[in-house]
C-alpha cells in the first residue's frame, strides 16, 4: 500500500516506488496530461510533475502554499491547464479564474474546464485586468506564470483590482523573458525591488527562491500586500 503524507492543504506526497508529489483527483478515473493515477484507500491521487509546473516546484522548494480547500484563485497564464488542473484539485470547494491569452492554449483549457466545474476560463490579456473585471470576484490567491517582461506590473495591476487585503500572490519570474542577456540573479533582484516599491499596491516578500533544479532561471516568489 502506498504511503501518503500531507504536505499542505490538498497537496500530498505519495510514496510508491519513489516519492511523488500528488493532489486528490477531482474527477476520479480521468487524467489530464498523461500523469499517473495512484489509488490509496479509496482515494485517487494524481501525480504532479514539478518539472512541468512552477507551482509544483514551489511546493518542493518548501514554499508555504496559501491555497485552502475553499480558496478563490486568480490564475494568470493558465496555458493548457496542466497546473490549473492541480490547483482545481486543491481548491475542490473553491473557484479558479483561469486567464489565458493564446487561443490555441485556450482550446485545451476549455476541454478541461468543461469537465471541472470550479474552473472558469477567461480568454484575455492578464496585463489588462479591466477587460475581465466584470467577471472576477475578490480573490484569496493570485498565481501568476505569464513570462512577460512586465510581470511585476501585471501582478500589481491584478492585485489592486482583485486581491483581498489578506490575500497572497504566488509568482514565477522567468529571467529570460525579462532580459535575455542579463545575469538572472540581477534580473531577480530588480524584479523583487519592483514588487516591493515600484507600483501600487506594494508587496511584502515572504519567500523567494530559485526553482532549480526543476526550472532553469526561474524565481518563485510568495508575497502578500503590505
Amino acid at each position: 500500500m502506498p504511503e501518503v503524507k500531507k504536505l499542505s492543504d490538498g497537496i500530498f506526497e505519495v510514496v510508491k516506488d519513489k516519492k511523488q508529489l500528488a493532489t486528490k483527483n477531482l474527477e476520479p478515473g480521468k487524467t489530464v496530461y498523461g500523469e499517473k493515477l495512484i489509488p490509496v484507500e479509496g482515494i485517487e491521487y494524481r501525480t504532479w510533475d514539478p518539472r512541468r509546473s512552477k507551482l509544483g516546484a514551489m511546493v518542493l522548494k518548501k514554499f508555504n502554499i496559501p491555497l485552502k480547500e475553499d480558496s478563490k484563485v486568480l490564475y494568470l497564464g493558465a496555458a493548457s491547464g496542466t497546473t490549473v488542473s492541480h490547483v482545481s484539485d486543491i481548491v475542490s470547494e473553491g473557484e479558479v479564474y483561469a486567464v489565458e491569452f493564446a487561443p490555441r492554449s485556450m482550446r485545451d483549457l476549455i476541454g478541461l474546464a468543461s469537465r471541472r466545474k470550479n474552473i472558469h476560463p477567461i480568454l484575455a490579456d492578464a496585463g489588462k485586468p479591466d477587460s475581465y473585471s466584470h467577471l472576477v470576484e475578490p480573490i484569496d490567491v493570485i498565481f501568476q506564470d505569464v513570462a512577460q517582461p512586465n510581470q511585476a506590473e501585471i501582478a500589481a495591476r491584478n492585485a489592486v483590482r482583485f486581491l483581498k487585503k489578506d490575500g497572497y500572490l504566488l509568482l514565477s519570474i522567468k529571467a529570460r523573458s525579462i532580459d535575455t542577456a542579463a545575469n538572472p540573479k540581477e534580473v531577480f533582484k530588480e524584479e523583487i525591488r519592483k514588487l516591493e516599491q515600484a507600483f501600487e499596491p506594494r508587496f511584502e516578500i515572504l519567500n523567494a527562491k530559485d526553482l532549480k533544479p526543476y526550472h532553469e532561471d526561474h524565481l518563485g516568489v510568495l508575497a502578500k500586500l503590505r
Binding site: M106, L109, A113, N118, I119, P121, I122, L135
Partner: peptide
C-alpha cells in the same frame, strides 16, 4: 452563481476561440 458563471465563461471562451481562426 458559480454554475452560471462557469457556463458563461466557458461559452464566451468558446466563442472567442472559434473567432480566432
Amino acid at each position: 452563481y458559480y454554475f452560471l458563471l462557469h457556463e458563461v465563461t466557458l461559452e464566451a471562451a468558446k466563442l472567442q476561440v472559434s473567432g480566432a481562426l
